[in-house]
């Protein structure tokens, strides 16, 4: 698909969608959103990129093999589960702290959010691994 409009749009969409995905991720604990959806949204521009320019080009823009994100995401998620264990509590126990951001007040930070981050990264990697591979199918 060698559409000039698609190619141009994709270039502009990339940063926008990435920002949007971070927004979705951040609000997920309190409003609709969350790691899974955010991961999909983050993957979308690269997917579009591969459709517009081909998978090879998209891989180049991404720089890192998407398979690596899968392992990393899973590892982060597992680590989030294990942090509670290190403190002598059951697997997946929420460990919470908060961060005072000037102007916003205290923000809760906890292992469930780290876990959600793992989901985010993992889903990103999964989606792109699948899309790229299918794009490249001979």
């Amino acid at each position: 698909m060698n559409s000039l409009i698609l190619q141009t749009t994709t270039r502009y969409l990339l940063p926008l969608l990435l920002l949007f995905s971070i927004f979705l991720f951040g609000r997920g604990h309190n409003e609709p959103g969350g790691g899974f959806v955010a991961g999909l949204v983050a993957a979308a521009p690269f997917a579009l990129y591969s459709i517009a320019f081909g998978a090879r080009e998209a891989r180049r823009v991404l720089r890192i093999d998407p398979r690596w994100f899968i392992g990393f995401g899973l590892l982060v998620a597992l680590t989030a589960g294990l942090l509670g264990v290190l403190l002598g509590r059951p697997f997946f126990s929420g460990v919470w702290t908060y961060l005072v951001v000037p102007g916003l007040g205290p923000i809760d930070l906890g292992t469930p959010m780290l876990f959600d981050l793992g989901v985010y990264v993992g889903v990103f990697g999964v989606t792109l691994t699948i899309i790229f591979a299918m794009e490249e199918a001979d």
Binding site: F36, V126, I130, A133, M134, A137
Partner: peptide
């Protein structure tokens, strides 16, 4: 359902590749 949707997606992607 969310869990199930996601799993179905993974399964579907695999099934498509398998069919191919």
């Amino acid at each position: 359902i969310l869990t199930s949707i996601v799993i179905s997606f993974g399964v579907m992607a695999f099934a498509l590749a398998l069919a191919y």
